[in-house]
């Protein structure tokens, strides 16, 4: 464990907590893409299948349980409890355009052709693009609530910090996983446009408005 990865995990945790707080306090899921949350849930389910078979550390297990339960809870809140506030008309990104290419790529490009490894690889590829429905929804509505912007900033930062973690592990531990690193770079790059808007607007106290 290094500082980059720890701070990265804490950013990830903060993002999920921020999202739950937003939903709970505003009693609304307005502006949130249920599809992205479904994809994140799928990422955790396919990645943490070894939750009970492969014990790494108490920290690892606790975080996996939290990520799994919170992502499932978020999907539940969006599609049942606060369904009335779900903006389905703007959450129209076709999930199959992400699921099918990621599944095909995971079958073709992986480290080992075994069910667990292919599912892990699928979750890595899917996580890289899972935010697209949310970013697409913001581009359609043209704005995002401030707390949703903070959520996205924390979520984007987590994988950016993981890239630093992979650099660190490459130089000091001679560990390197090209699949995780390439997908992580793609994932972080997808947030760049949002990072620019967040830093130039939200941090200036303005609401996140996309140029019409």
């Amino acid at each position: 464990m290094n500082a980059f990865r720890l701070v990265g995990d804490l950013c990830h945790l903060a993002a999920i907590v921020l999202l739950l707080l937003k939903i709970w306090k505003s009693r609304s899921v307005a502006g949130l893409s249920g599809k992205s949350q479904i994809l994140f849930g799928l990422v955790f389910v396919t990645r943490y299948l070894d939750l009970v078979t492969n014990f790494v550390s108490p920290y690892n297990t606790i975080m996996k349980v939290f990520f799994l339960s919170s992502s499932i809870a978020t999907v539940y809140l969006i599609y049942t409890k606060f369904k009335a506030t779900y903006d389905g008309n703007h959450d129209t990104f076709r999930m199959e355009f992400l699921l099918i290419p990621c599944a095909l790529l995971a079958i073709v490009v992986n480290h080992e052709f075994s069910p667990m490894e292919i599912l892990w690889t699928f979750s890595i590829y899917l996580e890289a693009v899972a935010i697209l429905p949310q970013l697409f929804m913001i581009s359609k509505t043209g704005e995002a609530e401030t707390i949703t912007s903070h959520y996205l900033f924390a979520l984007g930062s987590y994988r950016g910090l993981y890239i630093m973690n992979w650099l660190y592990r490459y130089y000091y531990e001679n560990n390197f996983d090209v699949i995780a690193v390439v997908a992580g770079i793609v994932q972080t790059v997808l947030y760049c446009d949002f990072f620019y808007l967040y830093i130039t607007k939200v941090l200036q106290g303005k609401k996140l408005q996309l140029p019409a």
Partner: peptide, 10 residues
């Protein structure tokens, strides 16, 4: 280069 070790990450 051992890529399996990345499985200790979240």
């Amino acid at each position: 280069q051992d890529n399996r070790s990345m499985k200790d990450e979240l």
